[in-house]
């Protein structure tokens, strides 16, 4: 009888350890917010270009995470990307003239949506739309613009530079 008691205690401990491990996986290791219909409200934000934004990306205000991107789809009438932002219920005093921008954590990090509050006294609620948005910074476009700008600058400076023909022009100092 004592033998079987030890055995049963061991099995009980094993099952507890296993369930604790499952709970750890769910609560500590993964982002649990996506389970079930969490309380909060959905706001739509229209962007011209979302870059590499993905659903489940954080939505922040002043750097604090207040929600996440629930879904992303394409609006075929407006030719814009629609992001559904799920904001936690406790942040219910966000002005309607809030603007949204897609930013990147670090140079190559994950993209997220940052909200900057406006001054209105009316607040965003479920189904509200944010149309004041700033698109994602696409690295290629930025580099392209930078190069274009540099080239234009160089053309302007060309006639002024007194470089003798045949000699390489002195590098322009910014």
């Amino acid at each position: 009888m004592a033998q079987s008691k030890v055995l049963e205690v061991a099995v009980g401990l094993f099952v507890i350890a296993g369930i604790a491990a499952l709970a750890t996986l769910a609560l500590k290791i993964s982002n649990l917010h996506s389970i079930g219909p969490s309380r909060g409200y959905d706001v739509k934000a229209y962007f011209n270009d979302i870059g590499g934004l993905k659903s489940e990306a954080p939505v922040t205000m002043a750097g604090v995470r207040i929600g996440h991107v629930a879904s992303i789809y394409f609006d075929k009438k407006r030719y814009q990307a629609v992001t559904v932002l799920h904001i936690q219920a406790k942040y219910n005093t966000i002005p309607v003239d809030t603007s949204a921008s897609i930013l990147t954590q670090g140079l190559l990090g994950e993209q997220y949506v940052s909200l900057s509050p406006g001054g209105s006294t009316q607040y965003l609620k479920n189904g509200s739309k944010i149309t004041m948005t700033q698109s994602a910074m696409v690295l290629e476009q930025v580099i392209g613009q930078f190069l274009f700008h540099k080239a234009a600058e160089g053309e302007q400076q060309q006639p002024q530079s007194p470089g003798a023909p045949g000699l390489p022009a002195a590098p322009a100092t910014p």
């Binding site: 996986l25 769910a26 500590k28 290791i29 982002n31 649990l32 389970i35 954080p58």
Partner: peptide, 18 residues
């Protein structure tokens, strides 16, 4: 921990593994 928690999804990753 924060990178782990932001990247591991409960449905796709944890539940898929289970």
């Amino acid at each position: 921990w924060s990178q782990m928690r932001s990247g591991v999804g409960i449905y796709n990753d944890v539940l898929g593994g289970v």
